[in-house]
Amino acid sequence: MVIAVDFDGTIVEHRYPHIGKEIPFAIATLKKLQAEHHLLILWSVREGELLEEAVDFCRKRGLEFYAVNANHPDEQVKDDMATPCRKPKADLFIDDRNVGGMPDWGAVYEMIHNRWSYERYIDEVHRGEMPEKMSFWKRVFGRG
């Protein structure tokens, strides 16, 4: 799948124009999704130097995006990282501004990995009850 991922409030705490602290397991989950051959697009309101800072933040943590604010790497303007593409074509968007908010990264991984809707996630993992916060690592890697 092609997955567009927001930066502020999704990968890091929302402190725009500054970069907030990494949201637990965001980078690890995205790297795991890449290892499963998903293409990740960084989709952010950031432009120019602020966008470069976000890309560098992720790169220093070993996360490289397929494209940045674009559908394909060739669409990007390399000098200032600005592009006319404001909404990339993606199969899925991960954004803290979703209706109902952003599930934790463990839930995001399980839904993408299993190709479940949120409703199916609730049914499969929590037997129809709203989930309690559970450790990402326990949910994703704890099943033997």
Rank of each mutant, 00 (worst) to 15 (best):
E52A: 13
S44P: 03
I11E: 09
I23R: 13
R97V: 03
I112F: 02
N98D: 05
V99E: 14
H14L: 11
K32R: 15
E75T: 02
K31P: 02
M81S: 01
D96Y: 09
V108Q: 10
D79E: 12
L33D: 02
E49H: 06
R97L: 10
H37C: 10
W43K: 04
L63G: 02
A26F: 06
E47C: 03
P17T: 12
L42I: 07
R46E: 07
L63D: 02
D79V: 11
V55S: 02
H38I: 03
A70E: 02
K78S: 09
K89N: 15
V108W: 08
A82C: 15
L42P: 04
V108F: 06
V77W: 05
V77Q: 10
C58M: 02
T83V: 04
V99T: 10
Y16C: 06
P24S: 14
S44G: 05
K32P: 00
R97N: 12
D95E: 11
F25N: 15
L33P: 01
E22V: 11
I41Q: 00
K31R: 15
K32E: 15
H18S: 14
T29M: 11
R86D: 07
Y16T: 07
K31S: 09
Y16Q: 03
V12I: 05
I11M: 10
E22G: 07
Q34C: 13
V77I: 10
D91M: 06
V55G: 03
C58A: 12
M102S: 11
I11T: 10
R15P: 00
H38N: 13
W105Y: 04
E22N: 06
R86P: 00
F57L: 01
N69D: 05
P103T: 10
D74G: 04
G20D: 06
E52M: 10
D79L: 12
L63I: 03
K21V: 12
E64F: 05
R86K: 14
I19P: 08
L39W: 00
E52Q: 14
W43D: 07
G101I: 09
E49D: 11
G101L: 08
V108S: 05
L42G: 04
E110W: 06
A28S: 15
K60C: 04
D91T: 06
F93Q: 03
E52V: 01
C58G: 03
R46Q: 10
G100K: 13
E47A: 12
L50M: 06
L42W: 05
R97W: 01
R115Y: 10
A35S: 15
D95H: 07
M111Q: 15
D91C: 07
F65G: 06
A35H: 14
V45L: 09
E110I: 15
M111E: 11
P88K: 13
